[in-house]
Design a binder for these strands. Structure first.
Length: 693
DNA sequence: AGCTTAAGAATATGG
DNA sequence: TCCATATTCTTA
């Protein structure tokens, strides 16, 4: 349950918001005051014109005010809007208000952000109440004013500073409807800056950031009890300004500034737009599926109880452990040693273990099926329902949620929706009827809007290609430069399993993929043998053969050496990850850091490229007058769009061209070509490959 | 007694 | 002793 939180004196249902229109040292010269003075200054809108508290505000036409910091009495009366409704997990909630600080002087260097002079008397504050956009629309004059102010702030190249900028942008995009107008805006978000400096501690609060990056400012002593809420709010806005200046300097000295400006900053706007885009869900199908899966689960439970000879809760790994190892004693009949849980040293009941046991007794296979169905039902069917509003979902995207630079999604986590469909036999209650096999594909619940089609663009084997680039291994390079028409993992699976290329299933391909990446990132033979379902000796042989054929150890060693020297690793576009344990005396910690180092260089670089792809595609949509596709989701290496039926051909060609050209545009010049596969369809679960002319 | 919280296990995704 | 996510469920 998300809770209310307070920041800068403003409350909103989801996240705190504050914004400072300001100027940073390196920014272009542009006079805020001149711009602000363009705001129509009739009596009603003049500075300090109208200030009100909440109650008076109700039902009146006053929705904004402008004042100077030199007049704290007026600040005092700006009461924060505290929503009276109960908290809800509604990512579509609009923010309640915007407070803007317009810095008149940009000579921050000379300003010591201490108690005495954190205020600049010349500074201007603008407060805008945007709780009720409908009202704003009714009152044309005020609506125009709001638009004008926001456009003034966002359409010039002077940077704006905002904590959690995405939330502000989401709101603004919604007010405007037309996101293309603000797509080029420049908003610095201190949270993102801090995350780039150290991706390990993400989601730090404003207070924590100030504590870490502004040694001289102490939030607690900066406020004294005589200050009112809004006095404090204005001070916090000033501190926010200084925090960003500090962070900018740090980013510049760590050579992260480019990454910040060219990747993360434009991405924030894109994510805000994505959060305003909705994905339609097939609700009837969802309900039917839920019932169907419920029946099937009960059936599986019955079978499991029968196989075990007693009733127990299938969802409890403890009870399962008792049945498997204390009652049935399966561990005694199993040749290889069974793994144990890392913490309590108990026998594991995880997937690989159950696979080892599945030939000894019917129960393990039933449990595996049960867990698979249970996961799909609770997470992707019933879980999904709770996020539906008006037949649609709209995930929340977290830009700073990972250490590798990737994005993460929640509510729902669309990146984690099962790709493979499950099949089972529908139990027939009517006698004499033919057996019915039902197929359930969780992704098919997501459907495109009327008159629109989904277009998915995937980078093929992006991490493997990056490995080829970094290692310069001739074998790998040749693999990709040969311009294969066949799928690499499928052909590897076919080679390894001695099965015709055509007969390789999707599951086989996934397994081959997992094995390949596992070996690259330094899997142990224990785990690999489980993954492959073979003995450790065979796994070892496979590993050695693979690593001999593709000699990547020069590269991995280079990464590890560099990490030992510098204590951090760097991705293709300069993203950094500190790994403090790299020089630890503890072997396992050090070894883990070494694996993380290698993994980060590849995974982080792939994340860089995918983000770059989003930005480039988005800006080409912006600059086009005719194209209207919407970015729906990013699944790490896949971009999902919803396109008007008539634009599919044109847009598909554009996307493919942009993504495959990134090998030159990335600024590095990749030694391998990038390959993109396109597919489209009316449902995410049923996409057919799309050839571009 | 019933309630919350935090951690771990398990399984889905991506590579 | 592959990496890094989210979600759900159990357990303490």
């Amino acid at each position: 349950m998300e809770k209310y939180s307070q920041d800068f004196g403003f409350y909103c249902k989801k996240e705190p918001l504050s914004l400072v229109a300001g100027k940073i040292l390196t920014a272009l010269h542009s006079s805020h005051t001149a711009n602000i003075s363009e705001i129509p200054s009739n009596n009603r809108f003049s500075i300090g014109d109208y200030v009100t508290n909440d109650k008076e505000c109700e039902g009146t036409e006053a929705r904004y005010s402008i004042f100077r910091s030199g007049n704290p009495a007026r600040i005092t009366q700006l009461g924060p809007k505290i929503p009276t409704a109960s908290p809800q997990l509604d990512s579509n909630t609009l923010l309640s208000g915007i407070l803007i600080l317009v810095k008149r002087h940009s000579d921050v260097e000379s300003v010591n952000p201490s108690e005495s002079n954190i205020y600049d008397k010349e500074d201007i504050y603008i407060f805008m109440d945007i709780t009720d956009t409908a009202l704003l629309r009714e009152n044309q004059e005020q609506y125009n004013f709001l638009r004008k102010v926001l456009l003034l702030i966002l359409q010039r190249k002077t940077p704006v500073i905002c904590f959690n900028a995405k939330d502000l942008l989401r709101t603004i995009v919604r007010i405007y409807g037309n996101w293309k107008k603000v797509s080029q805006c420049v908003i610095f978000d201190p949270r993102i800056a801090a995350w780039l400096l150290n991706p390990s501690d993400c989601n730090l609060s404003f207070e924590e950031l100030v504590k870490i990056h502004c040694e001289r400012v102490d939030l607690k002593t900066t406020y004294n009890s005589s200050h009112t809420q809004h006095h404090i709010t204005c001070k916090r806005l000033n501190i926010l300004y200084h925090l960003m200046v500090k962070l900018q300097h740090k980013l510049q000295s760590e050579e992260l500034w480019d990454l910040f400006c060219t990747i993360e900053l434009p991405l924030t706007t894109i994510l805000a737009v994505m959060e305003n885009n909705t994905i339609q869900v097939n609700e009837e199908e969802l309900k039917k599926t839920s019932v169907l899966l419920g029946i099937h689960l009960k059936e599986l439970e019955r079978e499991a109880h029968h196989a075990a000879g007693e009733k127990f809760r299938l969802t409890s790994s403890n009870e399962l452990r008792q049945v498997l190892f204390e009652k049935l004693n399966l561990h005694l009949r199993c040749k290889s040693k069974l793994p144990r849980t890392s913490s309590c040293h108990l026998p594991s009941t995880a997937e690989p273990t159950l696979h080892q046991l599945e030939d000894l007794h019917p129960l393990p296979r039933i449990i595996l099926q049960f867990r698979q169905v249970q996961k799909i039902k609770s997470t992707f069917v019933d879980g999904l329902s709770s996020y539906i509003s008006k037949g649609c979902v709209s995930p929340t995207w977290n830009q700073t949620g990972t250490v590798s630079g990737r994005l993460s999604a929640k509510h729902p986590n669309i990146q984690g929706v099962s790709k493979l469909s499950i099949q089972f036999e529908k139990k027939q209650y009517v006698q004499g009827k033919a057996k019915e096999i039902v197929t359930i594909n969780p992704r098919s619940m997501f459907i495109s809007a009327k008159g629109h089609t989904f277009l998915a663009a995937d980078f093929s084997q992006i991490e493997l290609r990056l490995l080829a680039h970094f290692s310069s291994d001739p074998e790998l390079l040749q693999l990709f430069n040969k311009m294969e028409t066949t799928d690499i993992f499928t052909s590897m699976a076919s080679q390894w399993k001695n099965v015709e290329y055509k007969n390789i299933t999707q599951a086989d391909r996934e397994q081959a993929k997992r094995v390949v990446y596992s070996v690259i990132y330094g899997v142990g033979k224990e785990r690999l043998s489980q993954c492959l379902g073979t003995t450790r000796a065979e796994a070892n042989a496979f590993m050695e053969h693979f690593l001999q054929k593709y000699s990547v150890s020069d590269f991995t060693q280079k990464v590890i050496d560099q990490c030992h020297r510098k204590g951090l690793v760097v991705s293709l576009m300069g993203r950094k990850r500190p790994l403090p344990h790299i020089n630890s005396k503890n072997y396992s910690l050090r070894a883990q850091a070494e694996r993380q180092a290698v993994n980060f260089v590849i995974q982080g670089s792939a994340a860089d490229l995918c983000k770059l792809a989003m930005i480039t595609i988005s800006s080409s949509i912006t600059s086009s007058s005719s194209l209207t596709p919407r970015i729906i989701a990013q699944i790490h290496d896949e971009l999902l769009f919803e396109v008007e039926d008539s634009q599919i051909q044109e847009f598909a060609a554009l996307v493919k061209h942009i993504m495959e050209s990134l090998q030159h545009a990335s600024g590095v010049g990749l030694k391998v070509p990038l390959k993109v596969t396109l597919s489209c369809g009316k449902s995410w679960g049923c996409m057919t490959e799309h050839q571009v002319k």
